Simulated assay, not measured.
Amino acid sequence: MRKFILVIILFIIVLFGIYFVVSPVKDVEQLNQTSSLSALAQEKSAHSTSLELNDGTPILGYRLSEIDVNDYFRSYLYKQDSTVEGAEAELLPGHIKFYINKRLVSFMDSQFVADVTSNTENGKLVLKVNSIHLGRMPIPMSLVWERLGIERFSGVTVDKEMNKITLLNHLPPSVSFKKADTTDDYIDLSASVSIISLRDLINLAPYLIPEDIQKNLSKKLNLFSW
């Protein structure tokens, strides 16, 4: 009888130990219906975008606060993955931490914590994944890609060998990112914009021009096409 009781106590201790290890390390906001990514971009562009000319080439600067990053992050996850229950991004000097609440089993809360560095490569915006934890436990990257399914998200590609995530692949090729610097207050992005033809301008419209103006332009362009 004593052995049975001892086994039960050990089982309870192990169970609580596992729960402590994988349970959320940070309280994060639950995912709810939010604005679309394009609507967010238009809403925030008025106060966060700057424009400079470098040898005649427009350079767009884009400053994102931690609130901005979280708006984009949660909007993207809400649209792409219905199994995510909550999420938060935390800006730190030189890197970012992403917290994603996602149940591995129905009776236990769990949280993925990703530490990443933002960078630019070949004109693309890239996140280098430095580490992944399940709660307080470090886990192999191979398990992360399988569980999170990031590669199925639209506009995103994953290099599993180099542990890199390339973002915003849906942007037109006329946009080339030059800088992605992170502080504990902001992410400062800059990108050169090559506008050679009217088609380049039309492709950029959803990200730079309010929706009502886009509709008017579309109607006029359709008239010209006849």
Rank of each mutant, 00 (worst) to 15 (best):
L217W: 05
D68I: 00
R136Y: 09
K164V: 00
I5K: 14
F224N: 08
S174I: 09
N169A: 01
S82Q: 11
V175L: 07
L91K: 03
L37P: 04
G155T: 01
D81S: 08
S65A: 11
H170M: 06
Q214P: 08
F73L: 13
T182G: 06
T117M: 02
K26D: 07
K220F: 14
D185N: 10
T120G: 07
T117A: 04
R199I: 06
L60D: 01
I213N: 00
E66F: 03
T182C: 05
Q33F: 06
V7W: 10
A39D: 14
D185Y: 02
S82A: 12
D212P: 06
K160H: 08
G17C: 06
E161L: 11
L92A: 07
M141N: 10
Q214W: 07
N119Y: 02
L64C: 08
S225N: 11
S75K: 03
Y99V: 09
K3G: 03
V21F: 15
L171A: 01
S65Y: 05
L221A: 09
P173G: 11
K179D: 14
A114K: 01
V156S: 00
S45A: 12
V105I: 15
V28T: 15
L127P: 01
S35Y: 14
L37E: 05
L125W: 05
S197C: 03
H133V: 00
N222W: 04
P210M: 12
P24F: 01
S192L: 01
L198M: 15
V25M: 09
Y19V: 11
S197F: 04
K164R: 15
T166C: 04
A41Q: 09
K179Y: 07
H170C: 00
